[in-house]
Write a protein that binds this DNA or RNA. Structure first.
Lengths: 203, 203
DNA sequence: CGGTTCTTTGAGGACCATCAATACGCGTGG
DNA sequence: CCACGCGTATTGATGGTCCTCAAAGAACCG
């Protein structure tokens, strides 16, 4: 780990561009990082990462180009470990290898969940699920604050900003109010019925 | 590996049901296996595996329930290794761990590609890409045979059988003819333009 | 051959994207 | 402090994509 270093980045800084060589394994120490894909000039948010998340693990292991781009959304502290070092440590530190394996298994699981989410649910159901899950994650207080802009959320959920706006309107009929970044829930149950969360999709 | 064993299965045999406990790591020795997800009574093909593919790696590592179900499509020979054994070998065989890591990184990469494919391309573009890729894989002879039924292909590509049928019709205007299971291409180039294959999406 | 499943084709509708216009929020500079 | 500009968020109108339903034809299997 001697070659590793830590760096602070301002918001909206592109850390990695799709197709670049996988020189470093990245770990989010603090802040928020977005992974996004691009194709034909369009882009889509694939993943949102908080502290203690790693990214670009697969590319590091296989010594291949990155499949996704990455940028900071907030001021972020990132730990960078040279890919060659990572691969070299595999030789000497079995425990480290198992840790990476565990991390990669988690990433894979999330990716599969994402695919299922997109393939099975409509956009309103995806939003309902997102709100439901977020509500649970923040302690079911009946209210929480979105910590990303709606445009980004729309992209993450696989829809346009316009459609997200309309979906929020539709959720009003299910006890969800939104004002600015603040979401209020009056009928946790009704929402659950709509989202039909599944342990195997939603972790 | 003492607890491992090999078993032959007839076609259309369900090997794993979503939510079951991850007792075994599976390896396809011969035949074809489908991984599919289910939700609310519907199902969708997530992955198609040929010889030398492993599956259920992530669940084995994390000792969690399977996220997907699996069934044979053809007569298949499957190697089963008890999950506990796999995890135990990690302690003693660093090389084995790295191999598994490599395999899992490949699975993850494919899953990300899948998500991008669904998020960016329309259903016709996905089919065009599938035909294009398959054509390349079989040696660009101008003709190849589908080795799965169209219903399954439709599910894999994230569309209904009806829509797949219509999409094939639409590809006639781009030099693709289909008769039964046999696909004939007259304009490889035109198809490539439509699919706009991307090394980072299509491997 | 008869039944079952798959495939195709057509009609209709749900869902979602696009385009356009307006309103809102926020930081900058007057 | 307010006016302005810029990006975001909302709302409406419209059209394209894709699913659902229905029915008929084709392939498969006992």
């Amino acid at each position: 780990m001697r070659g590793a270093y830590v760096q602070n980045f301002p918001p909206h800084t592109e850390l990695i561009t799709e197709g670049d060589c996988a020189d470093f394994l990245h770990i989010v120490s603090s802040g928020t990082v977005e992974l996004f894909g691009t194709w034909q000039g369009r882009e889509s948010c694939m993943s949102l990462l908080g502290p203690n998340s790693t990214f670009m693990v697969a590319a590091t292991i296989k010594d291949r180009p990155y499949q996704m781009s990455a940028r900071t959304l907030k001021e972020s502290r990132i730990i960078l470990i040279p890919s060659a070092d990572v691969r070299e440590v595999f030789e000497h530190e079995p425990r480290f290898t198992v840790s990476i394996l565990d991390e990669l298994a988690t990433c894979y699981g999330e990716s599969v969940q994402n695919s299922k989410n997109i393939k099975f649910r409509t956009s309103i159901e995806r939003l309902a699920d997102f709100v439901f899950e977020q509500h649970v994650r923040e302690g079911c207080s009946g209210e929480f604050t979105l910590d990303i802009e709606k445009k980004k959320l729309a992209s993450y959920l696989g829809m346009t900003p316009e459609n997200l706006s309309r979906s929020f309107s539709a959720l009003r009929g299910h006890g969800v109010e939104i004002s600015g970044q603040v979401v209020t829930l009056s009928d946790h149950n009704d929402l659950e019925v709509l989202a039909r969360p599944d342990a195997l999709i939603d972790a």
